[in-house]
Design a protein around this nucleic acid. Sequence first.
DNA 1: TTTAATATTTAGATTAGGCTAAAAATAAAT
DNA 2: ATTTATTTTTAGCCTAATCTAAATATTAAA
Lengths: 220, 220
Amino acid sequence: MELTVAEENYLKAIYHLSDGGKKSVSTNDIAAEINTKPASVSDMLRKLGEKEVIEYRKYYGLQITETGKRYALQTIRKHRLWEVFLVEKLNFAWDEVHEVAEQLEHIQSPLLIQRLDAYLNFPKFDPHGDPIPDEFGDVRSRPRVQLNEMDVDQTGQIVAVKDSSAAFLRYLDKVGAYIGARIKVLDKVEFDGSLEILVDQKKTLFMSKDVASNILVLQS
Amino acid sequence: MELTVAEENYLKAIYHLSDGGKKSVSTNDIAAEINTKPASVSDMLRKLGEKEVIEYRKYYGLQITETGKRYALQTIRKHRLWEVFLVEKLNFAWDEVHEVAEQLEHIQSPLLIQRLDAYLNFPKFDPHGDPIPDEFGDVRSRPRVQLNEMDVDQTGQIVAVKDSSAAFLRYLDKVGAYIGARIKVLDKVEFDGSLEILVDQKKTLFMSKDVASNILVLQS
DNA sequence: TTTAATATTTAGATTAGGCTAAAAATAAAT
DNA sequence: ATTTATTTTTAGCCTAATCTAAATATTAAA
Ligand SMILES: [Mn+2]
Ligand SMILES: [Mn+2]
Ligand SMILES: [Mn+2]
Ligand SMILES: [Mn+2]
């Protein structure tokens, strides 16, 4: 069976919002995520239900099926591989890739993806630190914690970001908080949850709780 | 103004069939080229006329406008750059690229194309020997002649193919007639126009007039 | 110069994806 | 336990791109 571009986008949104099928997702959430109206979502859910990529009970929400997960993971795989390509080969900044990857992920050609994967040396993570599912949809995920939840004196390495918006990524660039950076929590302000961080053993950095909550760390 | 994927495909077909705006094109020809019905073509011509990328007079054919040419050349540029990428970087065979390039040519991102072009070292020709328009739509075309029109003892270099079908390209691979090969016409059979060719000063090759007419040569 | 053949366009449907406004179901508050 | 608010779905409409069948224009033949 083949999915349309719109169906692929919906399925990907559902997969993400449901955290891989764990949480339940609302019609309104989907509408917000992909910038459509709830009425349009209802209609699409009916169609996705008929195609059996979700299990849909009117008014009671939906459950992504195993088939649906496979499709979603396939699209996510393509999206992230293209992002790696854009950054590694075409020198895109990490905040410039998302829009384009959003289009490239819909190109249909198994050979293309297989070759692209090999060309990039089978990367395991995209430029934002998110894991790239393998061709069978398996994801090797690392245990990671939000920076705002770490305690003073704990150390680790930035491995991913939760928010991939250009604004946030450009901010991180500016302050030097790149993926791979080793960090240590120097201080935490009780009052507002803001943090003082040591980056790469040399630079100290202050950040709000809000910023910190969008930085994911592999503790060490 | 932005064109839809279908509009881009129509415009490209019109550009090709009209030989860059020189020849006149029929509704039926377009339908055949892009595998649709004439009725669908009529409707699309009306729309393309409204968008002023063609000048359309019902029953009397059409003329591609300067604006239309710019759009068509932009799409052709993208198509050919992607073909180079697929062959040079992802090791696609030259008969495997067309389908995928047909999709990739519709990705919207000026930055992407600019970077891709640079990454490929500003190639001037695609894997089938067709020239790649520059970002302004300028095409540097070489004078080339169909192999079947050459005379005995004349020499040259294969620079392009007219037919890019997988079947034809695989045949050329098999007999060793690649782009760049130096050739010499050893003999021509008066009766059916078939030819005997010397390839790279070592291999002789017999081919029908039909095959030869799809091979383009830069004479020397 | 009529008539026949061919090419092209129009009419009317269909499918996909979206929208607004109204209806209906569920959830939250009194 | 009603009433109110929120969420979700349905109804009806729209645009893009396709199709088949019918109508019309152009071109070729008799
Ligand atoms: Mn992304
Ligand atoms: Mn997308
Ligand atoms: Mn091609
Ligand atoms: Mn195309």
